[in-house]
């Protein structure tokens, strides 16, 4: 069972060796993140050949701007979103290193439910701020940041067709629908 949920969105990481909610706030859960003040990504997904750090931001949630979305939108206005995304990646990397769980190359994927033209400045901003992190040494045999990607639901579907996203809001009104498949 590799279905993970962040607020209203559920992603089925089909084929993953291990998929965890890394941003786990519930002490009763086995994957509880016990350093609650440390920035972290939402999910960590381990495939056979690579690890994916996944961050989910859902400002495109229908009919509501929730607390998480408000935080995101404020970061966009303040121009701090890119730095905050990089911080989450770095601290998650740091944590997993200490757990001996970083034996493969790492991809960092942010799912942000904004239209493509609105995402582009975030992608460009991240690229600009990742100049040093995107450099690769010839001596490495795995990559600490194999790729840094930002997707909305449509582009996610094109790049990760095996990992369907479901919006659960419709469940309350009688049905669950898979986003982007209508």
């Amino acid at each position: 069972m590799n279905k993970l949920q962040e607020d209203d969105l559920q992603i089925d990481f089909v084929g993953a060796q291990h998929a965890m909610k890394f941003d786990q706030n519930d002490p009763d859960q086995p994957d509880y993140h016990d350093l609650q003040n440390m920035p972290r990504v939402d999910f960590i997904v381990e495939m056979e050949d690579a690890i994916y750090f996944i961050e989910v931001k859902d400002p495109g949630r229908p009919n509501a701007v929730d607390v998480g979305s408000t935080k995101l939108l404020k970061k966009i206005v303040e121009g701090t979103l890119e730095a905050s995304l990089i911080e989450k990646y770095l601290f998650s990397f740091f944590f997993r290193w200490a757990e001996h769980r970083l034996e493969k190359s790492v991809h960092y994927v942010s799912l942000i439910t904004l239209e493509s033209p609105l995402l582009q400045p975030i992608i460009d901003g991240l690229e600009r701020q990742l100049t040093n992190l995107s450099k690769k040494s010839a001596r490495w045999d795995r990559e600490p940041l194999a790729s840094c990607q930002v997707h909305n639901i449509e582009t996610w579907k094109a790049v990760f067709p095996d990992w369907p996203i479901t919006r659960l809001a419709a469940a309350a009104t009688g049905g669950v629908y898979t986003v982007g498949n209508s």
Partner: peptide, 18 residues
């Protein structure tokens, strides 16, 4: 890109205002 940045920020502001 500045024009796109302005669009993204304006979008965020409009949703925050709402």
């Amino acid at each position: 890109t500045e024009a796109f940045n302005n669009l993204t920020v304006a979008h965020a502001k409009s949703y925050l205002k709402r």
